[in-house]
Simulated scan of single mutants.
Amino acid sequence: MLVGLGSADLADVQKQSLKIDIYDQYLNGVGAGAWPTWNSPSGAYVQVVAKNADTLGAVPMFTLYQMASNGDGNLSGLSNQTFMTGYWNNVRLLFQQIKTYGKPVLVNFEPDFWGYTQRLSTNADPATVFALVNSDPDCSTLGNHVAGLAQCLVQIARKYAPNAYVGFPPALFGDLYSTALGYMQKLGADKADFIVMQTLDRDAGCFEAIPQPSYCQRAGTGWYWDEANIKSPNFTEHFALAKSYNTGLQLPVLWWQTPLGVPSAVAGGSAGKWRDNRARYFLTHAPDMVAAGGLGVVFSTGEVNQTSINTDGGQFKTLTTNYLANPAALP
């Protein structure tokens, strides 16, 4: 089972001599200031990340996060010709750059976006949500809806970069649990190469804080999972959910943006040092993840105030060193 890191600077990874298999970075924005403008010529940021991954002996991974350009959950761009033209041009550029790189690359398509569109859909059918698709020359035969959008992403990937491996992330929103798998099937997510399984975009302790800090404002409880797997929520339940996607889509699972917090008996924590137990549990129960269809797990911070490899007291270094001494074999 592979182990990766995301949203970490190359120098920070090198400073600890960390051994990782996957190196993930976000691609944000459409229009002015979007990721193609971060380096010159346009789109060269892909090569920068790929070179850093090479330096670490890792496979580069890109998390395409363009649909949040107008704000998280704002889907107004789907019917805006200017936005969608820019969106598709960026997607095409990404895969052209990946082809130039010439070695395997992983791409994660639009976290959370699919959940927001599902909430707008009728009978959990992505073909009922409008999106401008077939005005793009590479997808002229596809429908103008979210199902067509998902198919277009895969179609462009296959056309321009046969060395790219792509995956869709089911949105693990509580209100969608019962219908999310069917929605992903209707999207055509089974035509991708892997499933992106999200855990939590913040450390559990950040949501436990009273009062919650501005960057962890979310209702609910049960953020810190039960490692004894007796009380709910727990890890056994989560792995069963992952297995349901693995079985339903017939694809391997890659966990992504898994928090780096350190376990504690005391709820909460502080900025950069919020508690969480997913890193410890995942890397000491890798065979359970493989049994759930797991291919690998990528750890990263979902927000700058979360625990990172620089603030975890060496936990990630210790856990990965111990794991790599006896890694879990894939079937």
Rank of each mutant, 00 (worst) to 15 (best):
S17V: 04
W35K: 02
L120A: 14
D125V: 06
N70F: 10
T63S: 14
V30C: 03
Q118D: 08
Y101D: 07
Q118E: 15
L27Q: 04
A32P: 02
M84S: 03
A58H: 05
A34V: 05
N123D: 13
L78D: 03
N39P: 00
S76E: 13
L75I: 13
K19I: 01
L120H: 11
S79W: 00
G33E: 09
V129A: 14
V46A: 09
A34N: 07
F113K: 00
Q47K: 12
F109E: 02
N80K: 05
D12K: 15
A53I: 09
V46K: 06
Y23F: 10
S7N: 15
F109D: 00
R92L: 10
D112C: 01
G71M: 06
A34E: 02
F130N: 13
A32I: 09
I98Q: 01
T122W: 06
Q16T: 14
Q25I: 04
Q14Y: 07
N52Y: 11
V91K: 05
M84R: 03
A34P: 03
T100W: 06
A32R: 11
A34D: 13
A32F: 05
A8N: 14
K99H: 15
A32M: 05
Q81K: 14
V91W: 03
A131D: 11
G86F: 00
S121A: 15
P104M: 12
Q66M: 15
T117W: 00
Y23A: 06
V48H: 11
D125F: 11
T37Q: 09
Q97F: 05
G77M: 09
V107F: 02
L93T: 12
V59G: 06
N70I: 02
A32W: 03
K15W: 10
L75A: 10
V105I: 09
G86I: 00
P36H: 11
V59F: 08
N52M: 08
N39R: 15
S69L: 02
D112S: 05
G31M: 09
S79H: 07
L27H: 04
T82E: 09
V49R: 11
Y45N: 10
P111G: 00
G115N: 06
V46E: 08
D125K: 11
L5W: 04
E110L: 00
P36V: 00
V30D: 02
K19S: 13
L78H: 10
L56C: 07
Y116K: 09
F130Y: 13
L120D: 14
T37F: 08
N80A: 14
F83N: 05
N70T: 06
A32G: 06
V59W: 03
G29T: 04
G43D: 05
L106S: 04
Y65K: 04
W38Y: 12
V129F: 12
Q66R: 04
T128I: 07
D24S: 15
Y87K: 04
Y87P: 03
N74Q: 07
G29L: 04
S121T: 05
G33H: 03
D112G: 01
W38A: 07
K99C: 07
A124F: 14
W114V: 04
A32T: 13
